[in-house]
Simulated scan of single mutants.
Amino acid sequence: MIPPAPGPAVSPVIAPLSSLPDFDPRRVPVVGVDDHLPAVPHEALTPVALRARFATPPMWEPEVLLEKKFMDREPAHASVLLGIVLREQPMVLLTERTAHLSTHSGQVAFPGGRADPEDASPAATALREAQEEVGLSPAFVEVLGNLPTYVTGSSFIITPVVGLVQPDCVLQPNPYEVADLFEVPLAFLLNPANHRRHVYDRDGVHREWFSMPYHDGAKTHFIWGATAGMLRNFYRFMRA
């Protein structure tokens, strides 16, 4: 668990990050940090370099594709938008889901959601969901391409859609779905020195995952699970 900052004696209320009973990923010990791996260089994170990488993708293998199943439900296709906001320092747009949602409540996530039959492609799903969830108009997004599908323990088959987001976009988060909307430097997320490994063994259950906690000066955002796994795959894609 990340130690709380010094403050008053009254402990803050921490929202649960898992629907599993007696399981809080923030309390699971860190078994390793991948600071021995090279970071993606800053020159590879420019819009020109990102467009070129997706236009001529390298040969590569994703590292994380399938989580251990923890929910008995029919598989469902979904898409998320890995949106890179083109500020002076490229930033990744992320949300914190509200606590009452039926799946992955309280967790850090990319904007996105379940595919509709009317959606023409995974990119169409990601753009529609991003508009519904955070008010991001598709006119402000340049889609670069997709990463491999990622299957969550809740049986969602997720296609991450990578896109460049114009910084002058106006966002209006849906308060029913989004408790917080924030940005994290792309360079931070693509530096394995910030990738922590966790292993959980209890009652015959074995799970492994990455976390990438990010402190923005006011709050620590605990990025883990599917979101961290997709970002780890993006790192592998960018370093291939």
Rank of each mutant, 00 (worst) to 15 (best):
residue 66 L to Q: 15
residue 143 V to P: 05
residue 125 T to R: 05
residue 43 E to C: 07
residue 57 P to Y: 07
residue 4 P to L: 10
residue 221 H to W: 13
residue 219 K to Q: 12
residue 159 T to N: 02
residue 49 A to C: 05
residue 28 V to S: 06
residue 86 L to A: 00
residue 99 A to H: 09
residue 186 L to N: 12
residue 28 V to Y: 09
residue 116 D to I: 00
residue 60 W to S: 03
residue 61 E to K: 11
residue 80 V to A: 05
residue 111 P to Y: 01
residue 234 F to E: 12
residue 240 A to I: 07
residue 3 P to T: 06
residue 172 Q to E: 14
residue 196 R to W: 06
residue 97 R to M: 07
residue 116 D to P: 04
residue 16 P to I: 02
residue 57 P to E: 01
residue 24 D to A: 14
residue 83 G to N: 09
residue 193 A to C: 12
residue 31 V to L: 08
residue 210 F to K: 06
residue 85 V to C: 08
residue 54 F to L: 02
residue 110 F to E: 14
residue 240 A to Y: 01
residue 125 T to M: 03
residue 114 R to V: 07
residue 39 A to W: 10
residue 197 R to E: 10
residue 63 E to K: 07
residue 143 V to K: 08
residue 171 L to N: 07
residue 199 V to Q: 14
residue 80 V to F: 01
residue 148 P to A: 10
residue 55 A to I: 04
residue 98 T to L: 08
residue 230 M to K: 15
residue 34 D to W: 14
residue 87 R to T: 02
residue 46 T to H: 15
residue 61 E to L: 14
residue 162 V to T: 01
residue 77 H to W: 06
residue 177 E to R: 15
residue 162 V to C: 03
residue 102 S to V: 06
residue 205 V to R: 05
residue 116 D to R: 10
residue 25 P to Y: 09
residue 174 N to S: 08
residue 20 L to E: 15
residue 217 G to R: 00
residue 66 L to F: 15
residue 86 L to R: 03
residue 232 R to K: 13
residue 161 V to E: 02
residue 195 H to A: 15
residue 114 R to H: 02
residue 152 T to I: 01
residue 209 W to E: 09
residue 3 P to W: 02
residue 140 F to S: 04
residue 203 D to A: 15
